[in-house]
Design a protein around this nucleic acid. Structure first.
Lengths: 347, 347
DNA sequence: TTGAAAGCGATACCAG
DNA sequence: CTGGTATCGCTTTCAA
């Protein structure tokens, strides 16, 4: 194979299809055919065009191409990216899922409702991306209507929606499993540390986990103890101070279930600060199974974060390939991973 | 302010500038002027156009706009994204730096030389992005030449280059500081756990930190001990097994300096597995100060990861704004953060 | 202040 | 097989 020149032959503006055509002494259309691998081009002609392309270091303008084709070959990913480690892991999965495809990825970080609006606004035109992947947030119907009008397929990861394909895990069940495990260990005073209530479009998962927690308690015939359900942000530090309050209660919990591993780390930290031994005096369960969890020996509910992203990408790719768009919710399995942060109630 | 309709009025294709013009009974150019806020449009005319825009739920096609303007308003970020936590943190900084700008961000993940080539290839055309930010890797000259020809400004974060603006930290100095600290604590048998040698384009930092380590030893008049400098991948697990070997040596080190916090965590884990107490029997120093470091009490060399990204974005934005492109290397400060993983040599 | 028309750089249909 | 040419949707002279 011929090596590309180390440096573009001419400076100045990049070569266009017209330049190549002129150079090769053929028409525009022929160059286009060669570039796109169409069959109907005579051998020698093709050779000449190829040579011209090489000499001019020509590469097609993707913008022009997009305008003409009405496709962009990019997939937009809208995600509250910097809020949590789990989002990063999901994006990793998405990248992996897109790896072998011709699609590139445009990341759009969404931290506020305003940013979210902007995101769907820009993708809603249909000329920014061919498809959309929304992570951990559900687009408002007004924005969905626009996507639909623009014929942009959209799949949700870690968020539910009745009329879109979704990849989720059963957070309610996860919360219940974690809590029941604690109950089985003999714990009765079990507290919960989660996120603030969702602001209409995201972080529904924490709420669902709370529900699972409450359900498990109810099934065990336990009353919900006032003051045992606390809410803060995703940050470790906030979770830590919440946990400190909890542990200083006249009747402190003997176990704490946190809605995420990040928050569980904050709980562990609080325990350490207060000289409370884990798991002897306090059991802690997290959620997600992020990297740090295995390191510190945190018992947690593992969620296939990476896989959720990969699968979401896969579904979108199928839709883009024209396969029937199955509007259904796929629920990925959860798994309780028992490590060193939990043990039987001792007092 | 008039509320946007909840749902686009007509289904079918999105409105174009021609549609708006027709609807408002004006020429294309006038609509364009209104959209772009040009001054020379009569009040009533503007009103009519605005009304038409609202009714049709018109929004300009960015592709067409790009083609015409020859700008994309996107900034490409090329980064070995999923290799390390530190890369994520840098990207966070970049996003923050771009927040207030009109630029969007296209992320391109690069894990292999091949992917890297593809990345620079696609951005090299100049129609994908207006500017480029490369993190932790230095683009080969052939690719740089193309960027230059296409007039795409490029700034490097965490990578050095003589002819590009760069934001780096002094890894050699950092390695030296860490090692000297260990020496000052009385340690003499100090091992190093780092990355494999860089593959010509990235991960230079680990090598530089090694150099700092060796320099500190040399300045202290210590011989480099064979078998004390080990290399693996960025992963915690690999670092752990390397550390285990080290600690099983007939003459094991009393301190280990790891080229990253992730690797340092692996070292701590190895110590724990072998029942070696930290810091009493083994001191450990990392590099980066990632989130988990403070959690586990790891002594480390803090690097302003977030800030490096933010600053890189700032420099690029300046270049894009036409300000003189200062080709110089900015070195961000490092800081030794002492926590619980280090202590005086006891034996 | 406004409109007509010429690009921007491809694709693809339609003749030849 | 191959070459014109219309088209994609917008910006921007250039005249009116």
């Amino acid at each position: 194979m011929e090596a590309l020149p180390d440096t573009p032959p001419k400076s100045g503006q990049p070569a266009t299809i017209a330049g190549v055509a002129a150079r090769a002494g053929v028409g525009l259309a022929t160059v286009s055919r060669v570039v796109n691998g169409h069959p109907n081009v005579a051998g020698p002609t093709r050779e000449r065009v190829l040579a011209a392309i090489l000499e001019l270091d020509y590469r097609p303008s993707s913008v022009a191409r997009n305008l003409s084709l009405r496709r962009t070959f990019v997939i937009g990913v809208v995600v509250p990216f910097f809020t949590s480690d789990s989002a990063v892991e999901r994006v990793r999965g998405i990248v992996a899922g897109l790896e072998a495809s011709p699609y590139d990825l445009a990341l759009f970080d969404v931290e506020s409702p305003d940013r979210r609006r902007r995101a769907f606004d820009m993708f809603g035109r249909g000329d920014r991306a061919d498809g959309l992947l929304a992570v951990s947030l559900v687009p408002p119907d007004a924005e969905l209507a626009r996507l639909e009008a623009a014929q942009i397929p959209c799949v949700l990861v870690d968020a539910p929606h009745p009329s879109l394909p979704c990849v989720v895990s059963d957070d309610v069940a996860g919360g219940e499993v974690a809590t029941r495990y604690l109950l089985d260990l003999g714990h009765r005073r079990i507290a919960f540390v989660g996120d603030k209530p969702p602001d209409r479009f995201r972080f529904r998962s924490s709420r669902d986990r709370t529900e699972g927690y409450l359900r498990a308690l109810a099934r065990a015939g336990l009353e919900r103890q006032p003051g045992y359900v606390r809410q803060g942000t995703q940050s470790r530090h906030v979770a830590r101070s919440i946990a400190e309050e909890l542990l200083r209660l006249p009747e402190p919990p003997t176990a704490i279930f946190a809605a995420s591993d990040t928050q569980a780390l904050g709980v562990l930290e609080a325990a350490r600060d207060l000289g409370i031994r884990v798991p002897d005096e306090l059991s802690v369960v997290g959620f997600d199974d992020i990297e740090a969890a295995s390191y510190v020996g945190l018992t947690t509910v593992r969620q296939p974060l990476f896989e959720s992203g990969r699968r979401g990408a896969e579904l979108l790719l199928q839709a883009l390939a024209g396969e029937p768009f199955a509007v259904r919710t796929e629920t990925l399995p959860l798994e309780l991973v028992v490590r060193r942060s939990t043990g039987p109630r001792k007092r």
